[in-house]
Design a protein around this nucleic acid. Structure first.
Lengths: 352, 352
DNA sequence: CTTTTTTGCACAATCGATGGTGCAAAGACT
DNA sequence: AGTCTTTGCACCATCGATTGTGCAAAAAAG
């Protein structure tokens, strides 16, 4: 142990050791030293000492002085879901690439928790906030606005700042069409056999449903309201809806459009209580991609939202000086059954 | 907009407004005011003003003064995986319940990135660090130790501080036995038909393999080395191992023990290139639980690690004054095929 | 009406880094 | 040698909250 091994070195420590003033040390270590006409030799000495004593700047002190922290926040509904956790993974990589520190938190889709979480992040002087899948983006906006914090919406749009979201209408169309086309010409799907389950009254669900209805009407004709069951996002409510349907109709629809992978988990819970045969001839489309879901015992067509695309766009928009509060749509991708895509995990090197 | 709507109020602002000194305001707002014998009326006035002006403390300033930040870190290998994202979700809840702010970051299973990430967190003066699934826990330990940061290992053990991990040996035994018992008595599994794929030379893999061998030897007899294929954690390497096996043997083993859900993703990639029939009579056991994986077209027996249990234990150990650097084992749970468990998501209320 | 005690609070130093300002020493120029 | 520049750096206030210390005014005791 070269140094005391205990407390972290500060610019004051280096100042004493180098015989320079703290401000000189600071300038050398934060890169502004040329502007301050510090001699190359002085700088070299200080850098060497910093290295030797493993100096790292105290970010709290830096942040206090500059009212910036180097932290970039991502506010998620939940972590444990492939869509959002991929979002977190990709976000981290992009923030790191910009030399800042990502901080990812979830707020449970609860408007109040969303606002409180934003407040907390603000108290740490985060520099920017990406609001992903928020139930009340404009509520979070208020909080950010008041603190002068730059922010942007992802996945679900707000009205006060720019939003970057999945093209849910187009995705809903693609998925619906793929479901219908999955059936053979000699026994085609009929209008009463295609149901949508899941989602609630948020922008994403509404747009997906709009796409669903448009294509369904076009290809199959009629579309009575009971073909659409908005169950909310809770797996258990979704399961209950399937149970109720099955109870009443004596069977499941031949084809399902499931609003999200979280709703799909509700379907799994239903599956657990029913034998294989119940699902043997059905086709399921799910808005969201999960590799394991793609290999279930019936054809599962999935929509993979373009997470990298959305985040890249969001970062780009963030850099604009005064971006207009418009909504940018990013096209998602249709994934055929039994497809295992590569993901952020593949970027890792696998040491042994 | 009642206040200026721009900058955040500070204790100095409230000091002017209330006619008290900044230190009095500070004491009132951080709860130490009784100790300082501040009058009830004064405190009430200040609280009222704070409320009115939506005062929130600047955590950077607080942290600078106290060299604590209220941040509790969780260092993960990756986000986008159900096991680790559930870990993140549960961690968040536990930290929030303690009135602190969770900060979750990933370090890609790369020893150097692990250390650098820890350094970064330290520069923000985090108060505690939970090191989960680190490739080099003792390396991270060095960094924490030097900064005087309390820390603990989860999921993979280190030797310098306490560790709380899954009982991988017992889990490996349970899973192996369940796989073997899944086969009917009239056509039992034979020794040469049970293979283990995935994992590498880390503690978890070694213990699982040890459990696998013990049970296999006991129930089926012999266990040649080629029944164990440690492919690392990369999905693509895992896939390649399956391809190679299939190429050589002309078929897959009847039974598989897959080391983790990430390795299972490698198996999915293999599956994508082969027809259904290839898997029709096989049984797969996977160390990790994923709800979708549980419903694949063949029996999938899974191990659900007790995440809540591990974290609860870890928090408990953290509170001990000088905990011994021992490893605490938490028993995982065997999950039968076609099981959809509830998870952290179910704690959310689903508003509409 | 003093002396002692208690109450209620203000003052000022401090945490570590930053950046504006000022000033001595060295060099350039007349 | 005297004036003007340039170089190289030190000094000090500042960011917002915390905390040890000190000291008036009020209350209690004598």
């Amino acid at each position: 142990m070269k140094n005391g091994g205990r407390k972290k070195a500060t610019i004051y420590d280096l100042s004493v050791l180098s015989g320079s003033s703290p401000s000189t040390v600071s300038a050398v270590l934060n890169g502004t030293w040329r502007k301050r006409r510090i001699k190359e030799a002085t700088a070299a000495l200080i850098r060497e000492l910093a290295e030797k004593h493993q100096y790292t700047a105290n970010r709290q002190a830096q942040g206090l002085r500059s009212s910036r922290s180097g932290l970039i926040g991502l506010l998620l509904p939940v972590h444990d879901n492939r869509y959002f956790s991929s979002m977190a993974q990709t976000f981290e990589a992009q923030v790191r690439a910009r030399g800042q520190c990502p901080i990812v938190v979830s707020a449970s889709r609860d408007p109040q928790q969303e606002r409180e979480t934003a407040e907390t992040l603000i108290s740490y002087s985060i520099d920017e906030l990406f609001i992903c899948g928020a139930t009340d983006p404009d509520g979070v906006h208020e909080v950010c606005e008041k603190a002068g914090l730059k922010h942007i919406n992802i996945d679900l749009p707000g009205s006060k700042v720019p939003s970057v979201i999945s093209d849910n209408y187009e995705g809903g169309r693609m998925l619906t069409e793929a479901i219908i086309r999955q059936f053979p010409a000699d026994r085609p799907l009929e209008a009463g056999e295609l149901y949508l389950f899941g989602g609630r009254n948020d922008h994403a669900s509404r747009e997906r449903i709009r796409g669903f209805r448009a294509v369904k009407r076009n290809l199959l004709g009629g579309d009575p309201d009971d073909c659409i069951q908005t169950t909310g996002y809770s797996p258990n409510n979704t399961r209950a809806a399937f149970e109720a349907f099955h109870e009443k109709a004596g069977r499941l629809p031949r084809a399902l459009f499931v609003n999200s992978s979280i709703n799909f988990e509700g379907f799994l819970r239903f599956m657990a209580g029913h034998p294989h045969e119940t699902f043997s001839d059905m086709v399921v489309g799910c808005y969201d991609y999960d590799p394991f879901a793609s290999f279930l015992p019936f054809p599962v067509i999935m929509i993979r939202q373009n997470i990298e695309g959305m985040l890249a766009k969001a970062f780009a928009v963030m850099e604009e000086p005064r971006p207009a509060p418009v909504t940018h749509l990013i096209r998602p991708e249709l994934i055929a059954p039994r497809t295992a895509l590569t993901g952020p995990l593949d970027a890792l090197k696998d040491v042994d």
